[in-house]
Amino acid sequence: MKSAWIVFIEHIKNAYLIKRLAEFQLRISNHNNYLGIAWELINPAMQIAVYWFVFGLGLRSNNIMEGVPFIYWLMVGISMWFFVNQGVLEGTKAISSKFNQVAKMKFPLSIIPSYIVFSRFYGHIGLLIIVMLLCLVGGYHPTIYTLQLLLYIPFALILTMAISLVTSTLGVLIRDTQMIMQSLMRIIFFVSSILYLPTNETVLTVMNFNPIFFLAEGYRAAILHHEWFFITHWHLAVYNLCLVTVLFILGSILHMRYRDHFADYM
């Protein structure tokens, strides 16, 4: 618990630094592109169009999903995935790619994956606003249930940071971590309710252990279904809260145990 407390305090003390570094990272990651930061929205839009064409129009003939047209159901459910996926994959290689830049500085290494993740958070907020506007055009107006997003959005951020804290340390110790996480994130994507909802109870039970399932259904409940998802499915809320806590503690222990030796592994 001491390691978790140290990492937590480092994040609190350097919250402003995380924000500034995230903004700088966002600029430099797009400065070579003609459209710049617009790609943070264009790329997800293109992927959504492909998923809708294949899974919605091609396989499901654009059928209704949970009382909602498939395109809206898909857009809301997948809106947080682009952030979580990019955040985890880039957070995994954060320390190994940035270590040499801060090796000779008195710099809190634990915030490196966090500011990399946070740099992707801006794109998520922009995409979510556009998705909500499209849903508004489709007749899905904001209600009091939409306030649930104030829980799910921070949870998506904290979950991604917690995972990245674990994987960024492993990425220094085990160079295959990046490839492992790429494969694992593909599995997590398809074993979630982003593209479909299974009728098989066994498959659905397995999906419940996937935090992406909780986020996708939570976003849909807030924007489309008008349901207090975290209350009606309180057991999932408790499970995911415990999962994030365990990931943060585990990541903190690993980070504090090895960060004085990162230079030896690089």
Rank of each mutant, 00 (worst) to 15 (best):
L74A: 02
L215S: 02
R175H: 07
L236W: 07
A45I: 09
E217W: 08
P113Q: 04
F209I: 08
S110A: 14
R220G: 07
M65I: 07
L35F: 00
A22S: 05
M266A: 08
I6Q: 08
R257C: 12
S29E: 02
K98N: 11
M181P: 12
L109E: 00
R60W: 06
D176C: 06
M256L: 13
Y219T: 03
S164P: 05
L173K: 02
V131H: 02
V238D: 07
L59I: 13
R20L: 04
F53I: 03
F155A: 01
I253E: 07
L150T: 07
L165I: 12
V246F: 10
A156E: 14
I125A: 08
L149M: 12
F214S: 06
E90L: 14
A222C: 11
N210W: 01
L195E: 00
M181L: 15
N43S: 10
Y239Q: 02
R20F: 00
R257L: 12
E10T: 01
K13T: 09
S97A: 13
S119M: 07
Q148D: 09
N63C: 14
I111W: 02
Q86K: 13
T232Y: 07
I223R: 00
I71A: 02
M256V: 09
P211K: 00
F107P: 06
M80Q: 11
I180Q: 11
I158N: 04
I9A: 10
L35P: 00
Y122V: 14
I116S: 07
E217S: 12
M80R: 07
Y72L: 03
A222F: 03
Y239S: 01
L247V: 08
H235A: 04
F213V: 06
S97C: 06
L149S: 08
W52A: 04
V88W: 01
A38Y: 01
A22V: 04
L136G: 09
L215T: 00
I78M: 03
L224Y: 04
M105N: 10
K106C: 04
G171C: 04
H233T: 06
S114A: 15
Q101G: 10
W39C: 01
S119C: 06
F190A: 13
M266H: 08
K13E: 09
F262S: 12
M207F: 11
L247P: 03
L17N: 05
P198H: 07
H31Q: 14
S183E: 11
W5S: 10
I153C: 01
P113W: 09
T202A: 07
A156P: 14
Y265M: 15
L109P: 01
A4F: 09
M161C: 15
I111Y: 05
R60V: 07
N63T: 09
A156R: 13
H261T: 09
I78H: 01
R120H: 13
S119F: 00
L157H: 06
W73Y: 10
Y51N: 01
L136C: 08
M256R: 14
F24H: 15
F70P: 11
Q182I: 10
F70Y: 15
I48E: 09
A263S: 13
I129V: 10
M266W: 09
L133W: 08
W52M: 14
N200T: 01
Y16E: 14
L254W: 06
L127E: 06
I130S: 05
M266N: 10
K93Y: 04
M1K: 03
F213E: 09
